[in-house]
């Protein structure tokens, strides 16, 4: 599908005749629905109360592009954007983020759990001793029920996820007094997401200040997303060309099919996140048959 303009860290797909007029209309409609959500958010909240989460990946990238469109229409700057530096990043993503930040003038704040990074000496798998962490981090570990004296520094482990992402996210909200935050979640990513709404209000708790999460692209499937990138020539990170479908921490993200760009893989019939065991279907069938449960 198309040829590629070479550039470091970013690619633009040339609009290709394979995307039919009908499909272009469909993608345009999906974008319109998203833009309407974004406009509603700007009606509900003041610009300084809003913020955008960005990962450098395809979902938050599309969300950022849509919000930028709306901001250009309204003649206002992009809201403060945050990216989480979990400590295990792909260089390609860092490069892509740097370029887009400059090109789109994104007011970007890179957020990190500096305390954990320092104690881990910025080294993956280094042991982190709980008593060396600050009070906030220790309280967070206690909240999730973590009960050892130390843990290895990994971005995608349960503990890593909580301290390097969840805690950082909530601290960002607190520090910037954010009332509404945009996220690039989609319904078809995960069964737990199926009932998510475009606007989800979160009450204040010890973990998080009161805020509303806004998900403008919930209704996009993985295929919708890539077709939209093609229709509107939205830039994306080169890793997707190499076969990644889902991008997280460098160590734990797996290529789905080597050498086949994400949009050419079987998006409708295979899982976005690799590593799911194939024999789950058979085991589920057997479980369903068991009468007594």
């Amino acid at each position: 599908m198309g040829s590629f303009i070479k550039g470091r860290g970013e690619r633009r797909m040339v609009l290709d005749s394979k995307i039919s007029e009908k499909r272009k209309r469909q993608c345009t409609k999906l974008i319109e629905i998203s833009k309407e959500i974004v406009r509603q958010a700007f009606d509900k909240f003041k610009p300084e109360e809003l913020s955008i989460t960005w990962t450098g990946g395809k979902d938050s990238g599309l969300t950022l592009w849509i919000i930028r469109q709306v901001c250009q229409e309204k003649g206002i700057p992009l809201p403060k954007t945050m990216i989480i530096g979990e400590g295990d990043e792909f260089e390609e993503i860092e490069q892509f983020v740097e370029r887009i930040k400059k090109e789109w003038n994104v007011p970007l704040e890179v957020c990190r759990n500096e305390d954990v990074l320092k104690v881990a000496n910025y080294q993956l798998n280094a042991p982190v001793r709980v008593k060396d962490l600050n009070e906030r981090n220790r309280a967070e570990l206690s909240r999730i029920g973590f009960d050892e004296d130390e843990f290895p520094f990994e971005a995608e482990s349960y503990v890593g996820n909580h301290l390097m992402k969840t805690v950082v996210f909530n601290e960002f909200l607190e520090r910037n007094k954010i009332k509404g935050i945009f996220q690039g979640l989609r319904w078809d990513e995960h069964p737990a997401r199926f009932h998510d709404g475009y606007f989800e209000y979160k009450e204040a708790s010890e973990l998080t200040p009161e805020h509303t999460r806004i998900r403008p692209i919930l209704h996009f499937t993985e295929k919708d997303l890539w077709d939209t990138y093609a229709v509107f020539q939205i830039p994306y990170c080169v890793l997707y060309e190499r076969g990644y479908r889902s991008l997280g921490a460098k160590t734990t993200s797996l290529i789905s099919i080597e050498g086949i760009p994400a949009w050419r893989q079987d998006l409708e019939n295979t899982e976005e996140r690799v590593g799911r065991r194939q024999d789950k279907e058979k085991a589920m069938k057997e479980m369903r048959r068991l009468g007594y449960m």
């Binding site: 799911r276 065991r277 024999d279 789950k280 085991a283 479980m287 449960m293």
Partner: peptide, 13 residues
């Protein structure tokens, strides 16, 4: 309705 609808993680065999 039945156990297969219960939220669960990986199925280990």
């Amino acid at each position: 309705q039945d156990i297969t609808k219960t939220p669960m993680g990986e199925l280990f065999t």
